[in-house]
Design a protein around this nucleic acid. Structure first.
Lengths: 232, 232
DNA sequence: ATTGCTGCTGCCAGAAACTGACAATGGAGC
DNA sequence: GCTCCATTGTCAGTTTCTGGCAGCAGCAAT
């Protein structure tokens, strides 16, 4: 979709303006950025709120969009829809509870907006995902939390020879393989990236310290070191 | 999003009208169904085409929307977005070429519409999918085609004892497990549902006949027999 | 209590967009 | 050449939207 109606298009622009800012933005700042009047900004915000957009406003602070991702209208092919449905089924069979529930919620949201007269893509799709490996779901959830919070972790790890070590790592990514999940992290002890099988992590606790580098920077560096593309 | 602007809302309604029909619909039929004038229908169709909606019209036939799925605007949570990205990464590492490419395309489409000022969710997401089991991709593609076309298949199958059989089946679903993929199908020989590991299918060819029941009906029956929910 | 400021809403005039009616155009079929 | 149908251009009237401005409410300072 290249463009929308002028007011609809402006409403999408307003959403992007809100999304780009981390801090609240006042109505007059919005008016200046979009080149419209203050009155129109108040109207537009009211319209978006009425449509369910999670905008919060507070006098003296400004407006902010609650965290989340807004997807504008998309056209997807049949195979693309199959891939999304199968992928969400994979995730609902793997991952920790929060991620599995999120996969089910996302699938429900997507199928809810498909036209009622059309055959339900999810009901029809014959691509199913079997259960995944049984890793420690609470361990997985804790690691995801540390990655998102960009906090260092103190790990007790037992390698394949049975040798136990303890070390502080900067968690970067979790890879889901068929039989195991792997944590990719920068290891302070080795001053290098290392991989840790989740089933060999005896314990993992946040040190309470922030990583000195952004997770996305470390992830990009790790990808470079591993020679991986962007999609894996 | 509960409602949209009146013209925008009508444009979405028009899309749904087109989506519900398998056969082309004329402009006057659209006008009658939406309760608007013929002139307005021509204007609306021109507007949707200008926005990139794949509508085809032919005098004497009517209008039709090319196959595909239109997703209206969606708000997704952070975990939901993680689940979609991870799921598509799973699929891009599994499935046949067409499905893997579709997963990559879907991921590209989704990340393309995220706001540029916001950190790219795909670049940031530390949830990665390792490679899947190496099944016969062309076999998988052929089975998917048969399921979609709702055609009977003549299988040569070798069971775990090494006994080879040949039978005609009605393919219903493909399950992706960690180490194997399974075809779930109605077996004419056994008059029951049976499961076939893809790596033991020696050959699979369409018989050219349609299955006597819709795939979605068989899928629902199979789910009932297997005691499965809707999301697996 | 009063005043000033800010955020926000209601109201209104004018502008812009939209709708439907109708005439006109072009193509196909006879 | 005529008829029919699909589609488009034009225009009057309607609807929606915009921006200006007055007014209200809340808060802080005096």
């Amino acid at each position: 979709m290249e463009s929308l109606l002028s007011r609809s298009a402006r409403l999408l622009d307003l959403i992007q303006v809100l999304r780009r800012r981390r801090r609240p933005i006042t109505a007059s700042e919005i008016a200046e950025e979009l080149g419209i009047s203050l009155r129109t900004v108040y109207r537009d915000i009211a319209t978006l709120m009425a449509q369910g957009m999670p905008i919060e406003g507070e006098a003296g602070l400004g407006y902010v969009l609650k965290p989340g991702f807004f997807l504008p209208p998309l056209m997807l092919g049949e195979n693309e829809m199959d891939a999304i449905i199968l992928g969400l089924r994979f995730v609902s069979q793997r991952g920790d509870k929060a991620l599995a529930v999120a996969a089910e919620d996302a699938l429900a949201k997507i199928t809810a907006v498909l036209p009622p007269g059309l055959e339900d893509a999810a009901a029809t799709s014959g691509l199913l995902a079997g259960p995944g490996s049984t890793s420690d779901a609470s361990r997985l959830a804790a690691l995801r939390r540390a990655i998102r919070a960009e906090e260092k972790l103190r790990l007790s790890y037992v390698d394949k020879l049975g040798v136990a070590t303890e070390r502080v790592v900067w968690p970067v990514a979790i890879g889901f393989f068929d039989a195991v999940e792997m944590l990719a992290a920068w290891c302070e002890t080795r001053s290098d990236f290392r991989h840790f099988r989740l089933d060999r992590i005896a314990s993992a606790a946040s040190t309470g310290e922030r990583m000195p580098k952004r997770q996305r920077i470390l992830l990009a560096e790790w990808r470079l070191v591993e020679g991986l593309g962007d999609l894996i």
